[in-house]
Design a protein around this nucleic acid. Sequence first.
DNA 1: CCAGCCTGTGAACGGAATGTGAACTGGCAC
DNA 2: GTGCCAGTTCACATTCCGTTCACAGGCTGG
Lengths: 226, 226
Amino acid sequence: MEPLLVFPDPVPPDVAQGLDLGGYPWKAVTSVEAAARLEPEDGWAGAVVCAEQDPEAAFTLCRSLRKRDIPLEPVLLVIGVGQVTDLELREDLFDDFVVTPSRSSELDARLKHLFFRTGRGTRPELIEYGPLALNLETYQAVCAGRPLDLTYMEYELLKFLSSHPGKVFTRETLLSRVWGYDYYGGARTVDVHIRRLRAKLGEEHANLISTVRSVGYRFGETRWGS
Amino acid sequence: MEPLLVFPDPVPPDVAQGLDLGGYPWKAVTSVEAAARLEPEDGWAGAVVCAEQDPEAAFTLCRSLRKRDIPLEPVLLVIGVGQVTDLELREDLFDDFVVTPSRSSELDARLKHLFFRTGRGTRPELIEYGPLALNLETYQAVCAGRPLDLTYMEYELLKFLSSHPGKVFTRETLLSRVWGYDYYGGARTVDVHIRRLRAKLGEEHANLISTVRSVGYRFGETRWGS
DNA sequence: CCAGCCTGTGAACGGAATGTGAACTGGCAC
DNA sequence: GTGCCAGTTCACATTCCGTTCACAGGCTGG
């Protein structure tokens, strides 16, 4: 995800905390010029503008963001309790606002809602481990930037293993947790799926899944070195 | 000004006070049926739905408001502080929300902002993805400049899929979200509609809808959060 | 070094999931 | 009633993939 533009710098502590808790990448800027200078190659994901300290500068920034060829969206305004009645609502300066002090979860909820409304993706639910990433919404997997074409069972197996990195599972456990508690079939089925997974991960990353002899399989590294 | 639809009846005192202070005409309703019965000739100006007392009923009402031929908007949701994290933000049920207890001025400000935004038609009336474009106002679809002659269900299905690009939906989910929560029928119905959609999209663009074996269908490609 | 077990590997089978054409149903206009 | 159209269901064809098997190779304990 591209970072959010946040004004001003330094960012009010509660706003910074809310953004961090929500897991959003962000960069603080002090001015319109700084915003242009620090803009990522793929653009900002959106903006969070705090108007408490310097309302004039904040609204100026909002206007400049809207005036771009491709207006920056979404823009979330952060204001103090005393500023609600002063809001210039007739002008299209922002998409939503939040009144501080507020719970950090409200900031997160408003950002999520904004991203949903503006069609920018809600942050996908991901499982990431090293070079591997699984997108749980789109049923797609990527290893070292290369998309993996996994079948359903391969995907489910990898999802289960990678969501418990370092932990060893017996074949029986995998069968009951991935295939279903009432599954009845040979344990070698697991072996074959593991093999195909390793093949699709590629020679370089096949070792993401390691064999624990006489026990089962493990995804990722042990937490104790090795 | 037409009155606002307010749920439930009786309306929480602070909400009623906020509406009165803002000078909004409004009518309280207890149910979807009551909302239909009390609807003014020129329709509601918008809706304020309080979800504190009975969240289930509130969300059901939101859904029914959205499902109308001309969806009722704007819809402002009123929730308690504890409900922020439970918000179903992935679903298009409301346009904005306010967390109580709050200053009555915030309610007023959000309503003003909503009317401003919806008045200027910020709400997307167009869905575009690659060569595909859906005009939600005229019920027309265009693919690569060529108009598509879609039936109602085909259009609704394509609209739902294309408004969540990349995401995989099971047949059951599609049946409940596109056909209706209470729909009871075979899942193969989805297959047939998908097939006709692909046929109408043309050989070249049939791959806009991809099959995820053992799961369901997906529109478009994955966004990896860039 | 050997015996015994465990795991990797390739191929093949069978069945589940999906694609596809066509028939059926109900509503609507004439 | 008749004909048409959209939506649903059905039957059959096809593709795909999960499972199993046989065998080869490797690890471990004695």
